[in-house]
């Protein structure tokens, strides 16, 4: 509870600039999608958003170094980050929910199961199966084949699980004031993250080149790419965050007790890892 020294920042340009930058980015994205040829707008928008975030976090770090934050402030950050991760969980829940719904209800019904099987009139030859290689309508061509989970996906699983372990070792090292150890294990984690991203890139290439798994390949391609795609974006962001943490460790930031920035990054990374486990099981294995 309140100790009477809660730090309330006076005024800041970053929130207003951040919202303008967000608007810029979104307008650019929309203009690109609807009218084409607005790449530059998106680029400027993204750069502006990243820049604002960088300056904003710089301010926070400086304030923290000046000792303006007390334990109550620390708890506010913790609650904030925790609930933010919960919101991310719900974001992925929507995509997993779509996957489960399609697999458990929509496709069997399209195949004529239950009282809902009226679509048999529309697509009498449709066979319900998962992975769905031939979608009901002839205008949509499904994937030719799907990935075996025991090749690249398994490698990726091992990479991410290992990275969670190495990150925990780094965190423990930081708590024990062994900064060099922390730095090395953190660097290892970043490398594992980069490997994951690379392999995921290879898999996407394979998907398009050899497997016929594309965004247009019916519901299999749709669910595959939205789940792995948003997960991949999160890994990229997580890796960037860990890189920043690495830079801060090298610069001598953080102490054995005061390192919530580091800890929050760990939370985020573990969350991304757990999402992958769900993906591995429900998108690749079963």
């Amino acid at each position: 509870m309140s100790g009477g020294s809660y730090y309330v920042p006076a005024k800041s340009y970053w929130p207003i600039l951040g919202s303008l930058a967000t608007g810029f980015m979104m307008v650019g994205l929309g203009a690109q999608l609807v009218y084409g040829s607005a790449n530059v707008l998106i680029l400027i928008g993204v750069i502006a958003v990243v820049a604002v975030m960088a300056f904003w976090f710089r301010d926070v770090i400086n304030e923290s170094h000046q000792g303006l934050y007390d334990s109550q402030m620390d708890r506010s950050f913790r609650w904030g980050m925790g609930w933010f991760i919960f919101s991310e969980v719900m974001f992925f829940a929507a995509f997993f929910g779509a996957l489960f719904y399609v697999r458990m209800f929509a496709i069997p019904w399209l195949g004529g199961e239950g009282a809902k099987g009226v679509s048999a009139l529309l697509w009498p030859n449709f066979i319900a199966e998962w992975p769905l290689l031939s979608p009901p309508d002839a205008s949509v061509s499904g994937p030719d084949n799907v990935f075996s989970p025991w090749q690249l996906p398994l490698v990726n699983t091992l990479l991410l699980v290992t990275s969670s372990i190495t990150l925990t070792i780094a965190h423990e090292a930081l708590k024990a004031e062994k900064r060099r150890v922390c730095r090395n294990w953190l660097a290892g984690t970043v490398i594992l993250g980069c490997c994951f991203i690379f392999i995921q890139g290879v898999e996407y290439y394979e998907a398009y080149q050899h497997y016929g798994i594309t965004l247009e390949a019916g519901i299999f391609g749709s669910t595959f790419f939205i789940l792995t795609g948003f997960h991949g974006v999160h890994v990229i962001i997580g890796t960037l965050i860990l890189m920043v943490m690495l830079a801060r460790i090298i610069r001598g930031h953080f102490s054995d007790t005061g390192h919530f920035g580091f800890e929050a990054s760990c939370w985020y990374w573990h969350f991304v890892d757990v999402v992958w486990l769900g993906l591995f099981i429900f998108v690749y294995v079963v």
């Binding site: 779509a98 929509a106 399209l110 979608p135 009901p136 949509v140 519901i219």
Partner: peptide, 17 residues
């Protein structure tokens, strides 16, 4: 914008979803 079939029964999705 990207031709997915989440809400398109022809591609195996479902508007009810």
């Amino acid at each position: 914008n990207f031709g997915t079939s989440f809400f398109d029964a022809g591609g195996g999705g479902d508007p009810v979803l």
